[in-house]
Nucleic acid binder design. Sequence first.
DNA 1: AGGAGGATGATCACAACT
DNA 2: AGTTGTGATCATCCTCCT
Length: 582
Amino acid sequence: MDGNTSGEDGNDIDWSTEDELEIESFTLSSSSSLTVPGREAIVGSGEASSSQGPSNSKVVDHFVGMGFSGKMVAKAIQEHGEENTDSILETLLTYSALESSPQEQQQVDCDDQFSSDSKASFPDDFSDIDSYSDNEDILNPTSEKNKKLLSLVNMGYTVGEASIAIERCGLDSTVVELTDFICAAQMARAEDAHLPLEEKPRLNHAYKKRKLLEYELLKKKKHMRLGNKTIDEDDEAVHLPNPMVGFGIPSEPCLKTHRNLPEAALGPPYFYYENVALTPKGVWSTISRFLYDVQPEFVDSKYFCAAARKRGYVHNLPIENRFPLIPLPPHTIHEAFPLIRKWWPSWDTRTKLNCLLTSIASAKSTERIRKALEDYDGEPPLRVQKYVLDECRKWNLVWVGRNKVAPLEPDEVEMLLGFPKNHTRGISRTDRYKSLGNSFQIDTVAYHLSVLKDMFPNGINLLSLFSGIGGAEIALHRLGIRLKNVVSVEISAVNRNVVRSWWEQTNQRGNLYDLDDVQQLNGDRLEHYMTLFGGFDLVVGGSPCNNLTGSNRLHRDGLEGKESSLFYHYYRILDLVRSIKT
DNA sequence: AGGAGGATGATCACAACT
DNA sequence: AGTTGTGATCATCCTCCT
C-alpha cells in the first residue's frame, strides 16, 4: 500500500555519492589485482592494458588480455616459446602466485580506496578475501587450486576473475559452480560496458551494479563486527506486508486492483519469478532491481491452502480478474486431514501448518515427544505443552495416535501443495521430500497466472527455468491453459523424469523440450527455439533458495551464494528472450 | 553407491518490554 | 530509543546401513 510511491524516493538517496563510486572501484580493482602483480597494467580498461604490451605478438596480447603483466608474459614466452601456450600459462600462474603478496596487496588496495573517508576506520583485513593462508597451495603450481585456476583460464576467464571465484566459492566447488559465479560478476560488469551504446529504455545498469556491490560490501561489514557503532541501516530494505496477501487473494480479491509497472517491465513476454520471502537483507531489493524494478508481490500460501509458504513473486502480469483453481483446496489442518482429529489434543491450537520443508523430523524426536507426554494422563503441564508445540511447529508434525506425532507423508505434502497425488511417486522418499519442499504451491501460482487464460485462448509457449517437478506447468494445465511448447530447464534428472512422466500421463499435445543446465542456455539456443515456435509468452522461474533460507545453517550466503547466484541466469535469459525479436 | 537417519544454529522481522 | 524475546525458515553434512 504505502510502498509503491514512497519506495522509489527511499531508493535513490545515496547511490551516486562518492562513497559508492569508491566502493565500486575498490571491488573491481581488488578483484583484478589480487593475484596479478603488475597492477598498474590492469587497473585500466582491457584496451589500455593490451596497448601497453611490449610486442605486437598475438600470444602476448592473449596473455596480457588475461591480466598478466607484459613483462611476465615476455619472460614466460622466452622460457617456453610462443607455441607452447599451456606451459606459458602454467608459468605465468606460478609467477603471479609467487610474486604477489596478497596481504600487502590488499592493504594497499584498502588504503587507496578508503583513506580519505570516514570509513577508513574499517579494519584492513577483509576477512573473507584473505583466505590465502594455505601457502602450499599457492606455491605448488599443481595444487588443486591452480588446477582449477588453469581450467578456468583455459575457458577464457581472467586470472583475477578465476581467483576471486575460487576464493568466494571455496576450493571444493566444481568448475561449473565457479564459472557460474564468474558469469554473474561478468554480467554486472558487461552491463556497464554496454551502457553508452544501447539506448534501450531500461534501467540504469551502472546503478544496478553499484547496488549489487554495495550489498556485497554490506555483508563484509557485517562480518567484521565493528563493535562500537552499528552500521547505517539501508533505507531500501524491502518491507514485507502484514498480512502477506500480495495484490489480493481469492477471499479478499479487491485489496488492490491496479498497479503501475515500470515501462521497461511491460510484457509480453510475461515473466514470473519466485523465491523465499525471508531472505538476508538486501536480496529482494537486488532481485527487484534486476527484474526491471518491479515491486515483488509477497504472498503467504496459507491463504490458499492449509500450509504456510511465504514467498515473493516478481512478475509483470496483470492483477485484475484473477481467479482461483477449483476445487478450492482444504484451508485448515482438520479439513485436510479429517482422520487426525481424533488424536488432536485441545491445547494444540494450530489450524495451519508451517512451511513444508525439504527434510522431515527424525524418528527419535517424535519418540522423545511421546516419552514426554506419556507420563501424564490428562493435559500435560504447560512446560511440556510448550516443548511439544515448539517441536510440532518446527517440524510440521501431526497427531497420528495417542501421544504420537509424525511427519507428513510425501503424498500428503503433494496434496497440500496442489500437486496430483503420487506426482513424485517412484523416486526415493528423501528425494520426494526434497523436490516437493523446493517447489511451488500450485494454487497460489495458478491464481497469479490465471489472468493468462483469456489472453491466450489458444495456449502458450512457456520457458520454465529451474522447473523442479513442474509446478508452473501443472498450474497452467490445471487452469486449462494449453501448453503448446514448453522448454523446461532443470538440473536434476530425477525431477526431469517426474515432469516427463507427468507430461505423458496427462496426454499433452504440445512439445516438451527438457534441458539440464541454465548455464548452457545461450542466445543461439534460445533463438533456435524462438524461431521454431515464434517466441515465448511466459518465462517462469524460481531460482535456488539454498543460500537465502534461514534453514541453511552453513551457507546462508545471500544472493552471491553458490546456488542462489543462479538468479542472475534467470535475469540473463529473461533479458535475452525480451531482446530477441522473432 | 546410494539412500536413510540424525545432529547441527543463524538470521531476520516483529512484538513486547524497559 | 534501546533491549530482549519469540517465531519462522524451498538446508547441509556426516555416519551408518543395505
